[in-house]
Write a protein that binds this DNA or RNA. Structure first.
Length: 419
RNA sequence: GGAGAGGUGACAGAGUCCGGUCGAAUGUGCCUCCCUGCUAAGGAGGUGUGGGUUUACGCCCACCGUGGGUUCAAAUCCCACCCUCUCCGCCA
């Protein structure tokens, strides 16, 4: 949620919102409605003060005086009700418009759409295309089974089997350990959450059609552990010395993938259910940009240690989404497609999400909204896939990245089962 | 799933039956000061959040789980919901 006062006072802030698609007219309208809202508020409060005073008098009045005083109070009550109705209308209009203003982009974010990203870095040597893509490879080794998964649950589901499971748990354990070394507190979060958590975490109403709903219980299956981590300190006021609070959450993730028919239908790239290790940081506003660079560097470290070629892009304004002021995507090289595809990303939401969550920081004597950031540590399905693709051997086996071997019983090669 | 109890400030805990002077007693904690070789004890004062308005002092509004309702007036009465706890049943 946008900071209305700052939108009014801070020209750079306003410009950042305009760069993300808000029009100057929208903003002007919103600000003028906001000042009308404040006027209405002042009016209502004056009437309430009057009413409170009158009521107290009635309490003290003699029984004979009461009827007349109560009659007068009744008149006030009617006036107040009218003023309150006007105020709540004004309030709804203002929040309705305010929710549509995106979080202003940081000045370092390039303008434009999906194709207008800034290339930050390209690392590793692009792997030449192997004999099979990851889906074919997985099926041929018997470690991914999508056909039987379809019979079980429909399209875009997969069984992960055998050594791929060992690799999956190795990945999870390895990333968790790495992050705990950087003061991230591990967390297993609820994957079924209430509607208001989805709203406050910023996923509703925008992404509602991407989320599975359990209507009977009024609960929703999360698409990321970010929901649980963002809501962890909802409504709390944290002490400045406790910050930054870094969490690494593990959860299964569920996405309906509505509107993606025909895209990435084979294999593990786009499925309805996958596991993910997610980083989340509650930061003091002064250090939030440093924390974003930390997230970026950790994500890079993970892919370079897995020996997977990747590039880092600074996502352009049009592709940032509502909440992010800046976002880096890490895109891994996919040899079978001869292109980079998004595998992780990290964003600074500044105060945008925390404002709605009511998560604040107490600094000496001032209390302000703190800043939140999030980033993928390891989207397991996609990471497995990039390992399959980039570590495929000419003989159709997969060489396990060195760093993972200690985490899967020194498994070094995934080969077809001979038994 | 069945039965019951309860949600009040940082915490503990009154107030709710009998609506008004209750933003809320009291205790603990915390802060400032006094006293005291040090510490402990003791004494005085202060100590919620959000918002509006004001150069400022201040004044005002809202908040006693959440949302509605009754009333001139609600922590207190009514309705719905959420949550917590206890017992029984069931269960990994």
């Amino acid at each position: 949620m946008i900071d209305l006062r700052r939108l009014n006072d801070d020209a750079d802030y306003r410009l950042g919102a305009i760069r993300k698609g808000a029009t100057p007219d929208d903003i002007e309208l919103l600000l003028s409605l906001e000042s009308e809202r404040k006027q209405a508020l002042t009016g209502v409060e004056a009437l309430r003060a009057e009413q409170n005073a009158v009521s107290k008098e009635i309490g003290r009045a003699t029984p004979e005086d009461r009827p007349a005083k109560i009659e007068a109070a009744n008149q006030l009550k009617i006036k107040l009700a009218e003023a309150e109705t006007a105020l709540s209308t004004a309030q709804e209009t203002v929040t309705g418009l305010a929710l549509q203003i995106p979080n202003p982009a940081h000045s370092s974010v390039p303008d434009g759409g999906e194709e207008d990203f800034e290339l930050v870095r390209e690392a590793g040597e692009r792997t030449p295309a192997g004999p099979m893509d990851h889906a074919e490879l997985g099926e041929s080794l018997g470690i991914v089974d999508t056909q039987r998964a379809v019979r079980m649950s429909g399209s875009r589901f997969a069984y992960i089997l055998g050594d791929a499971v060992r690799l999956q748990f190795a990945l999870i354990q390895w990333t968790m350990n790495k992050l705990m070394g950087h003061d991230f507190v591990p967390a297993v979060v609820p994957v079924l959450v209430r509607e208001d958590m989805m709203v406050d975490a910023g996923f509703f109403p925008t992404d509602r059609d991407q989320v599975y709903e359990l209507e009977r219980d009024g609960l929703f299956l999360v698409g990321t552990a970010e929901v649980g981590l963002a809501g962890l300190h909802r409504g709390e006021r944290l002490d400045a010395v406790e910050l930054p609070k870094r969490y690494v959450g593990y959860s299964s993730c569920f996405r309906r993938e509505a509107g993606t028919y025909g895209k990435d239908t084979a294999g593990l790239f786009r499925v309805h259910q996958f596991d993910k290790v997610e980083m989340f940081i509650y930061s003091h506003p002064d250090t939030a940009w440093d924390e974003l660079e930390l997230l970026r560097s950790l994500e890079e470290e993970i892919f370079s240690e897995l020996e997977i070629p990747y590039r880092v892009i600074n996502v352009a304004t049009g592709d940032l989404g509502n909440a992010a002021a800046k976002k880096y995507d890490i895109e891994a090289w996919i040899p079978s497609q001869q292109t980079y595809r998004e595998v992780t990303s990290c964003s600074n939401y500044t105060d945008f999400s925390a404002r709605r969550m009511g998560t604040r920081v107490k600094d000496d004597d001032a209390t302000t909204v703190l800043h939140t950031l999030n980033g993928t540590a390891c989207a397991v399905g996609r990471t497995l896939l990039t390992i399959f693709e980039n570590h495929q051997q000419p003989d159709g086996t997969i060489s396990v990245p060195e760093v993972l071997r200690p985490y899967c019983g020194d498994l070094d090669v995934i080969a077809p089962r001979t038994s």
